[in-house]
Design a protein around this nucleic acid. Structure first.
Length: 572
RNA sequence: GGGCCUGUAGCUCAAUUGGUUAGAGCAGAGCGCUCAUAACGCUUUGGUUGGGGGUUCGAGUCCCUCCGGGCCUACCA
């Protein structure tokens, strides 16, 4: 038995995430976690909200609430929605937790002792009206290159030229519009990751089985230009983890906090501590997942994330762990995703474009979304959501192929044999062929799931569902029942057992429907069907069941058009 | 500007890493079945693999070039 530590990139706190965010990290991570649990492995699946940084402060101000209160509320909302989507986190933590405060300060202290922290004095733009330093992209002005009047301090969106905030003509705060800006001297800590370049390089070089998307981004950062650059890990903000050297104050760093990207990955570890606390476990219980000197040597750690997160997970976070000189568990596999686009453009949180998680659940159950998103996951390139494609896939795959299979066999049994698995007859040659076929198909499905080939796994699963319809078609119990009731009994018994079999293996994709199938089949037997022959005899003759309601209602053209219109604009 | 990814059937995607005649699902066409959510099964139409050039016995795959889409480029996260 392997122990699987699984983390999803932690979603940012400022608002409800859209379907693109979901499919890029949390959902595939949940698929993998559910699958590994289903296979009988010990799994610790962690996620959290990422709560620090400028956007959180601004979002709270906009909502007219103290940041801490805003974050607490948004965390509760995100947790509720995650639950609605069936995301089976063992713990959904917060990067603002006391555990993360302690650990982040601890790592900073260790890195400082190792000589990997440098102090750099730099000039930054301060807005008197806003009472805060402004990150480059929060400064707007006229582009010196093309004259565009809404150029940002980091880059002009119009001519794509990279800029420095001081290049802008008539610079103003993007927050308040104030032009009362000044350049101030401020001191910050830098992580000297350049000093760890060779170790990181060797580590990445050893990851030959990682997605190209993951390693190519890492290598680009390692080798581009002068190579890996040191990175600022502190900011002049109020909300965040105070800069400390372990438990000690950091002279000269008073009033400053750690940069959100320094503390966010550390939350993966802190979250395990939160999980232990929340479930009444001792510290040793979470340490055996994270410390290779305390039992984590046999842990396999997999991270899931969108491509924009890759540099931090392949370079700065590993640099933090390596630089600490302590035996922390390093990631074994990084599964990264491209982006999901919405109907010809990008999903956008800031512009409110696309379908957001709460809206999705308002119109359809989670399984519909889970199935479509996972079977179209942007693995090899960006992929696109369209309502037509969504309607077609859901109706065909879920309603027609799987849902109707459950419906046809349970209703046929009820009318000919009553609501119990028919007794009598025995599996014959036809059933042996089916079992052999399913055994082979299940192996392929397992292989794809182990490899985290999400779309391919969905295809294999669908083919297994189709095999049930093929069997029924050729067995034709509606015909055999007239001449050979014993034979028909065996065929129907097979059909009903297939429902239970499907429920078990489909649970990682569509957990709610799977639970309903199991409930209809009146069984708690959910062991992974390693032996397909035995699995298809689990429900014996005489076992009572009920005919479930329609498993998946079809999406009508009217609904589709309605939603198309409703989601064509932008959200407040 | 630089780096990376990507372009395959009307649509969404494959193709054992250079190896026979480029495959699936959906949509379309035909047939079958009547248990079922007008569902299911079988058969079938559909491709100058974005354009052009090159390497090779052999190219969707490698090289060059042009065209299109996307991401990243270190102070958003």
């Amino acid at each position: 038995m392997t122990r699987h530590l699984i983390t999803s990139a932690i979603p940012y706190i400022n608002g409800i995430k859209h379907l693109g965010n979901l499919v890029g990290s949390q959902l595939p991570a949940d698929l993998y976690a559910r699958y590994q649990r289903g296979r009988g492995h010990e799994v610790l699946f962690l996620c959290a909200t990422d709560e620090h940084g400028t956007p959180a402060e601004l979002a709270a101000a906009k909502a007219g609430k103290p940041v801490a209160e805003y974050c607490r509320e948004m965390h509760a909302i995100q947790a509720e929605i995650a639950k609605g989507f069936g995301l089976s986190f063992d713990h959904f933590g917060r990067s603002s937790s006391p555990q993360n405060h302690r650990l982040t300060q601890h790592f900073a202290g260790r890195l400082a002792e190792a000589g990997l922290i440098g102090e750099v004095s730099e000039k930054q733009v301060y807005s008197n009206a806003d009472g805060r330093f402004l990150p480059d992209r929060y400064i707007e002005g006229t582009c010196p290159n093309c004259g565009y009047d809404k150029a940002r301090g980091d880059q002009c969106e119009n001519c794509t030229k990279q800029l420095d905030p001081t290049d802008l003509i008539e610079p103003r705060s993007a927050i308040s519009g104030s032009t009362d800006l000044e350049v101030r001297e401020t001191k910050h800590l830098y992580l000297r990751q350049s000093g760890l370049k060779d170790q990181l390089d060797a580590w990445i070089d050893g990851k030959t089985d990682w997605p190209i998307l993951t390693t190519s981004i890492a290598k680009k950062w390692l080798h581009d230009g002068d190579g890996l650059q040191d990175r600022g890990i502190t900011r002049d903000l109020d909300w965040g983890i105070p800069v400390k050297k372990g438990d000690d104050d950091w002279p000269g760093m008073e009033g400053k906090v750690f940069y959100v990207w320094f503390d966010a990955p550390i939350e993966y570890i802190a979250c395990a501590g939160e999980w232990a606390e929340a479930t009444g476990r001792a510290d040793a219980e979470w340490e055996r997942w994270w410390r290779t000197d305390k039992g984590a040597q046999d842990v396999r750690y997999t991270q899931f994330m969108g491509k924009d997160n890759v540099p931090f997970h392949t370079l700065s976070f590993p640099a933090t762990l390596i630089g600490s000189g302590e035996p922390w568990k390093m990631v074994d596999y990084i599964k990264s995703f491209n982006y999901l686009n919405y109907d010809g453009g990008q999903f956008s949180t800031s512009q409110g474009r696309g379908v957001f998680m709460d809206q999705a659940l308002e119109i359809l159950p989670a399984d519909y979304w889970r199935w479509w998103l996972l079977s179209h996951a942007p693995e090899s390139s960006d992929s696109e959501f369209t309502w037509e494609n969504f309607q077609a896939s859901v109706n065909k795959d879920l309603a027609d192929v799987l849902g109707n299979f459950v419906s046809r066999i349970t209703k046929f049994c009820r009318s000919k044999f009553g609501e119990a698995v028919p007794d009598g007859g025995a599996y014959g040659a036809q059933e042996e062929v089916l079992i052999a076929d399913l055994q082979a198909r299940l192996r392929r499905y397992e292989t794809c799931m182990e490899a985290m080939e999400v779309r391919k796994s969905a295809q294999e699963l669908r083919a297994i569902w189709v095999a049930g319809n093929e069997y029924l078609q050729s067995a034709a119990p509606w015909a055999t029942v007239k001449e050979d009731p014993e034979r028909a009994a065996a065929q129907v018994r097979m059909g009903l057992n297939l429902i239970r079999f499907y429920a078990v293996i489909s649970a990682p994709f569509i957990p709610t429907a799977s639970a309903r199938m199991l409930s209809a089949m009146n069984t708690l037997e959910t062991d992974w069907p390693t032996d397909v022959d035995a699995a298809l005899r689990a429900l014996p003759g005489g076992h009572a069941f009920t005919v479930p309601d329609v498993l998946f209602a079809k999406i009508t053209d009217e609904q589709r058009e309605d939603w198309q219109t409703r989601f064509s604009g932008t959200r407040d």
